[in-house]
Design a binder for these strands. Structure first.
Lengths: 336, 336
DNA sequence: CTTATTTGCGAAAACGGTTTCGCAAATAAA
DNA sequence: TTTATTTGCGAAACCGTTTTCGCAAATAAG
């Protein structure tokens, strides 16, 4: 009934607990013979060490945290897969913590980690995050942290991002080449690095191609789906209706399609649409959706790999390890 | 730099560690005055107790695990949201463990939990799972476990499912009413309860409406996307091509749409298609997809609530708490 | 044959909390 | 005023591991 512990094993084998522990860690102090007996008995009795007891005495909890705004998003769920693939290999477990795009939640979560719940953190900041004190605090307490996708520039650690500027540029350039001369931009936050870099790429493209830039066409979407619907409808109903849209997050896909349909706008004839998205269904939408597709799995994998390097050797300097992984531009029916 | 612990607090306040601990737990032994001083100093010094140290002495780790086949699936990611919403309220953290539909992985994961890494488990079994020893083992060690969606019937604990039989029936009935007389069924596993119950609903509908049943039209999909593509193509190219399809999992959506397109089959004219799915994009697919949509968030929430009840009082009997939450049938363009 | 060295293990102190128990001082009852 | 009770706290055991250190027996070196 009750879980067996190292003491039970010791009693069973007529050895001291210290010896058992050392046998498990393949200590040179213990004879091969004893090691085998210990291992065999452990297997037989189904002994599994308590990870948290181990974590107390210097060793780690073998838990890492993934702090993200939401999980019902293809980018993040694929990134989790990437992270999990390396965590599993390292014998680590993954705590998923959702900020729901709230800075307050994010602070609370990181605060909790001060207590040693996790050995390291992988993080994509919330749309509201512009301060960095909570993160610096955690890192100051010796918890390594690696950013992926949504980063805070001012913090000195590894950041795994994609080429947001170039992607924003490419998306916009494509729309221009397809004949759009009035292009709306749907961002998610004014403080978010990725949103801003994509916006800069958009602006540069407009400028390079001498297309009119109108700040009215830059919409900052909220975290509330209903509110976003209203914003998008207003944009598409307004006197200055765009004939092209660049959207920076996957969850804006459905609202744009729905609003277009409701307003009798045809995609792509009346409105061309390109979205940053990892949706598997992009190719079977009506019309199929032109996307900037981020290397989500790979980004998660790289970020996790770096985190573990830093967990394995303390002198590993995360701040020199940032990487930019390029996204893929996939042309489909929504812009042709 | 280093995290401060209860000893540091004790030193700072000239109190014993025991007193500090009791103050935090609002013990009657400690005066209001002292409690306030402790709380205030803790806040000032940014003290966060080590959850794993607490977990050693009887208290819990405040971690629960969610064991699921994959995370890149709308049902599971929404269920996670539901689970997280109640975990957060209870001050718990959520470990996500992916089996990738492998029984071996599932066994390894549960085995690890014997050590006390988590206080309870929420689980949807893999497609390969038919034995229950690994689960009984864990539960036998005092770790409560609640199933959601994919359950193992023979295990005596709470199971939160949806009305799989009725849904399978309704989907099939709908196709029949829309004129299909040759309906394929795409399952994912022969051992999986949900797949089988949906299949039974399908069979009953065929029978009730005197539509020919042909076991050749029952395809058991694999966990390999490429292989699934082949199976689906074979079905749609065969001499006995169905004019309707019921698919039991979301990830079969894209393959069916793609295969139809590749083979020049029009949905819904040549092939009507209904899928168990929580895809947000179902309504904007080409054509929009008729779905059986499960109450994913709610199922996660109910399952988690039950798990916490059992964590809170030991005498709580999970085995009497199973619930069936109905799915919604949403008719759209793929069957009209 | 004595003196080093190695080998294999046990005892005990940590790790950071919680909890039981005891005890002195303060208060209440007699 | 004496005795009983309550209040507020400290000492120490404990949770399940890891790790340091010491020590006896076995082996090697001189």
């Amino acid at each position: 009934m009750k879980n067996i512990n190292i003491k039970d094993l010791a009693r069973e084998l007529n050895l001291s607990v210290g010896t058992i522990s050392k046998a498990f860690h393949d200590s040179y102090e213990i004879s091969e013979d004893t090691k085998n007996r210990v291992l065999e008995t452990a297997r037989r009795l189904n002994y599994v060490p308590n990870p948290y007891a181990s974590s107390l005495r210097g060793r780690r909890s073998k838990n890492i945290a993934v702090v993200i705004p939401e999980v019902a998003d293809s980018f993040f769920s694929l990134a989790i897969n990437g992270i999990e693939s390396v965590a599993k290999e390292k014998g680590y477990h993954v705590l998923i913590c959702l900020t729901h795009e709230s800075f307050e939640n994010e602070k609370t979560i990181l605060q909790e980690f001060q207590g040693g719940r996790v050995d390291g953190v992988l993080m994509s900041v919330s749309r509201e995050t512009s301060e960095s004190a909570h993160i610096l605090n955690l890192m100051g307490n010796g918890v390594p942290l690696v950013f992926f996708d949504r980063v805070l520039d001012e913090i000195d650690t590894a950041k795994i991002t994609t080429d947001d500027f170039e992607s924003g540029y490419k998306a916009t350039e494509h729309l221009i080449q397809q004949g759009c001369d009035n292009i709306g931009f749907l961002g998610i936050s004014e403080c978010l690095s990725i949103s801003n870099r994509r916006l800069e790429g958009y602006q540069k493209a407009l400028n390079d191609y001498h297309v009119r830039y109108d700040s009215q066409q830059i919409i900052n979407c909220t975290n509330d789906a209903v509110q976003n619907d209203i914003l998008i409808r207003e944009l598409l109903q307004g006197p200055n209706r765009p004939n092209g849209i660049v959207a920076t997050v996957e969850k804006l896909t459905t609202p744009v399609y729905r609003a277009s349909e409701a307003l009798g706008l045809n995609i792509p004839a009346d409105l061309k649409f390109v979205c940053f998205s990892n949706l598997e269904t992009a190719s079977i939408l009506n019309p199929s959706l032109t996307t900037i597709t981020q290397p989500a799995f790979e980004m998660g994998k790289i970020a996790a790999t770096l985190l573990f390097k830093s967990l394995e050797k303390n002198d590993f300097n995360l701040s020199k390890e940032s990487q930019v992984v390029p996204s893929r531009f996939i042309m489909r029916g929504s812009t042709i």
